[in-house]
């Protein structure tokens, strides 16, 4: 049986890589994908801890996280599409409407 710490370390690595991708990338869609990576890292931690605690409550929580991620993806991509229609770009540097 693989110890839970392996999975937790992998989860930390994935979360941090998602955060780096969010900061480094410059188009909205890839930044959104980075958010999904971070959500998945959290899912992995939930399931690893559920396994080591011997209960399946953590797996039910992961269900809810996946559902919320799906809803978030639908609304977020709709917003990205709206931004593209108005600005004709999805580069974050060109979207500076609120800059003084």
């Amino acid at each position: 049986m693989i110890p839970a710490s392996y999975f937790l370390i992998l989860s930390i690595v994935l979360f941090v890589m998602g955060a780096i991708a969010f900061f480094v990338k410059r188009d909205l869609i890839t930044m959104f994908m980075a958010v999904e990576v971070m959500l998945n890292a959290a899912n992995l931690a939930f399931i690893a801890l559920a396994r080591s605690a011997g209960s399946i409550d953590g797996q039910v929580i992961v269900f809810f996280i996946i559902t919320v991620a799906a809803a978030e993806a639908a609304v977020g991509l709709a917003i990205i599409l709206l931004i593209f229609r108005q600005k004709k770009t999805i580069k974050t540097e060109d979207i500076n409407l609120m800059k003084g």
Binding site: P3, A4, S5, L8, I12, R51, A53, G54, I56
Partner: peptide
């Protein structure tokens, strides 16, 4: 997560 790294693994089979 330092405390969670050394958690004992439950040996019972999960009904998942």
């Amino acid at each position: 997560l330092k405390g969670a790294f050394t958690l004992p693994i439950s040996t019972e089979k999960l009904e998942a």
